[in-house]
Every structure is written in structure tokens, then in C-alpha cells.
Amino acid sequence: MFEARLVSSGTLKKVLDAIKDLLNEASFDCSDTGIQLQAMDSSHVSLVSLSLRADGFDKYRCDRNLTMGMNLASMTKILKCANNDDTVTVKAQDDADCVTFVFESKKQEKISDYEMKLMNLDQEHLGIPETDFSCVIHMPSGEFSRICRDLSQFGESVIISCTKEGVRFSSSGDIGSANIKLAQTNNIDKEEETVSIDLQEPVTLTFACQYLNSFTKATPLSNRVSLSMSANVPLVVEYEIPDLGHIRYYLAPKIEE
């Protein structure tokens, strides 16, 4: 028996919004420690890694490890049937071929359940070693989202250049070029608005705007984001989901022409 309950359906909707741009379907691996998801986008350029801890749920039970392959468009249809403040419970029997979503309104006057067929997905998992990055940038997630959106008007790629002075995001194309520089800030009063850089050595890498913009669909999950970079390895964009877990996106850097 698997059962996981969240007080707010809105959180699950945000998690789904954060992955459905990149993935059509995904396997949710459930164990007694929580729910994990790892999947590459269809072009295999980026990778999504989601972790939801068991203790972040209001109720969590997983008697046997279970992998639930879900079509994310179908899951979106079902979650649209929930109000954001409805409680959601995800349930499945061991070896089940379907999963049930139960939505309960705040006053319990409306209870609805939706059953969805599960899929057998043959997904390849990649082992990602813990790495010391040359630089790690912590910044407001809304600012990162804004920068990606603004720069994607100019070109298909963004150059991220990190030095001890700060971080520079640049893009160029037919209409011209754009540069956005962020300096480190020391605003202790508004910690969530700070930009901080842990720098071992300066790094400059180029990434596709299209993927960065997809990653920023996780912005509603967290007001902070971290960007971890080292030369010639994938960028890691991480959003901590408060009291529940995290979502990480990995993106291969552009190859030098």
C-alpha cells in the first residue's frame, strides 16, 4: 500500500508545473524515505531530479518500493480538478496498474477521487556524483526567471560568466545584445533578496535559453535558486522546496564551435 497526503494540492500542482515543460511522462519512485523522480527531457540534453521527503508529507505510507509511471498531461488534467487549498492524497496498491488521487475540500463537504492508469516506462537512470563546483550562485528565483525571460528575446543562448566581482548573463542575436550584471549583495534585512557567490575559480559557460526558461517553471516552489557551475560539466539549477524536498535541473553546456 502506498499513500501520501499533502494539505495543499497547490504544492503538487506547482511540482507538476515545474516538470511538465520538459517531460511528457515520468516514473515516480516511491520508497519509505519519500518520492524520487529522475528523467531526461526528450532530446536528452537536460535532466530533472525531484526529491520529496516522506517527512514533508502530512501522512506518508509506503509498504513496498513502488514505481509509478505517469503521463504528465493526464496528471495535469486530474490536478486541474482540485482547488489549491484542497487536501490531496495519492494512493496505490502494491503492484497496482493505476493510481488514485483523492481531493478533499477544507470543510470536508466535497470529496472527489480520480483514478489514472499507470504506464510502464523504461527510463534510464544516471548516477550523478557529488561534485565540488567552481562557483555556486545563490539568488532570488524571481530574478533568475526574469533574466532568462529577458535575455531569451535576444538569442537562443545565454552566456553565464561568474567572477569574484559578480555574475554576468549575456545574450546576443539579430536585434542586438544584452548584458545583465549582478553584484554580490549584503542585505541582511532581506536575506531572500541577496545574491551570493561561492567562488573557487571564475567560470564562463553557455547554455540554451529554451531549457533555462523551462527550469524557471519551478519558480513558484521557492523564492531562492542556486546555480552551480564548473568548466565543461553540466549546470545544476536547484530549487529547495520548503519543508518537502528539492528539484534540480542539469543542463549540458554548449559545445565550443
Binding site: S43, V45, L47, E124, L126, P129, S157, Y250, A252, E257
Partner: peptide, 14 residues
């Protein structure tokens, strides 16, 4: 989109 390596070239499948 510009030429780009697959993410799988950086990590080992398991």
C-alpha cells in the same frame, strides 16, 4: 537549436 552534447555523456547510467 545549437549543437549540444547529451546530458548522458557526462554521467554514468545505472
Amino acid at each position: 537549436l545549437f549543437p549540444q552534447e547529451e546530458i548522458g555523456t557526462y554521467y554514468t547510467p545505472y
